[in-house]
C-alpha cells in the first residue's frame, strides 16, 4: 500500500445522499479477477447522463470526491474502492460512510474523511463557484485546508499511523503469529471444522 501523508488536488461535488456501492460500481463490473480496470464501471449508470458531475469538463482531473451523507452503503464489494482509485480519486469526504466501505477504503489506501455536513456544504458551494480551488487533505495534521479555511477531522491514531507508513495489515498481524497459535491450542474440540467433509 502506498503511504499517505498529505494530498492536494481539485475536488468534485457529488450532491447525492445514500450512494450505495451498487451505484459506485454495478454488479456487472465485478467479474474481473484483477484489482485494476474498474474505472470504466465507476458510477456507470449515472455517467450515461451528460449532465452528471463526472462528465462536466471543469472537474476533469479532480482527485477528491466530496459526497453526500451515507456514501458507500450496501454491498461489501471492495471493487467500489478500487473503482474510485482506478479513476484517480485519492480522498473521499462525506458526513457518513457505510461501515464496510469505510473499512475497505482504509485497508486499500483510499482516505475517507468524515466531516460535519455544514463543512461538506461549504466545500460544495466553493468548488461549484471555482472548480480549480485547491483542497489539501493533511493526514499528519488531520486537517482539511481549502480557500482560507482549516477544518480538523478525526481518525484514530492506529489507522493514521498505518496509512502514513503504508503498512501491510497482514504483515502487522503476523507479528502476533505466536498468539494466534496459542489461541488455536485452546480452542474447544467441539468447534466446527469444514474438513473432512461429513455427510
Amino acid at each position: 500500500m502506498k503511504a499517505f501523508t498529505s494530498h492536494t488536488g481539485t475536488a468534485i461535488p457529488l450532491r447525492r445522499s445514500n450512494v450505495d456501492t451498487d451505484q459506485i460500481i454495478p454488479a456487472q463490473y465485478l467479474k474481473r479477477v484483477t484489482r485494476s480496470g474498474f474505472e470504466d464501471g465507476l458510477f456507470n449508470a449515472w455517467r450515461q447522463d451528460p449532465e452528471f458531475v463526472l462528465n462536466q469538463p471543469q472537474y476533469k482531473g479532480a482527485t477528491i470526491l466530496v459526497a453526500g451523507p451515507d456514501f458507500g452503503t450496501g454491498s461489501s464489494r471492495e471493487h467500489a474502492v478500487w473503482a474510485l482509485q482506478n479513476y484517480g480519486f485519492e480522498v473521499v469526504l462525506s458526513h457518513r460512510f457505510g461501515d464496510i466501505f469505510r473499512n475497505n477504503s482504509l485497508k486499500a489506501g483510499l482516505l475517507t474523511v468524515i466531516l460535519p455536513q455544514e463543512v461538506i456544504e461549504d466545500v460544495w458551494s466553493r468548488i461549484e463557484a471555482d472548480s480549480a480551488l485547491a483542497v489539501t487533505v493533511d493526514l499528519e495534521a488531520r486537517e482539511i485546508l481549502f480557500a482560507d479555511k482549516k477544518v480538523t477531522f478525526e481518525l484514530d491514531d492506529y489507522t493514521r499511523w498505518r496509512l502514513m507508513e503504508g503498512l501491510d495489515d497482514i504483515g502487522l498481524t503476523l507479528r502476533n503469529v505466536e498468539s494466534i497459535a496459542r489461541y488455536e491450542e485452546k480452542r474447544p474440540s467441539y468447534k466446527v471444522k469444514t474438513l473432512p467433509v461429513r455427510s
Binding site: 464489494r77 464496510i100 473499512n103 485497508k107 495489515d169 498481524t173 503476523l174 494466534i180 488455536e184
Partner: peptide, 21 residues
C-alpha cells in the same frame, strides 16, 4: 457474523484473524 472486503478476505486466509475496532 459480518461482511468483509477483499483485503480482509486475504487477511483471514493468511492469518485466520482480523483486526477489528
Amino acid at each position: 457474523a459480518f461482511g468483509i472486503g477483499t483485503s480482509e478476505v486475504e487477511h483471514v486466509l493468511a492469518t485466520q484473524t482480523l483486526p477489528q475496532a
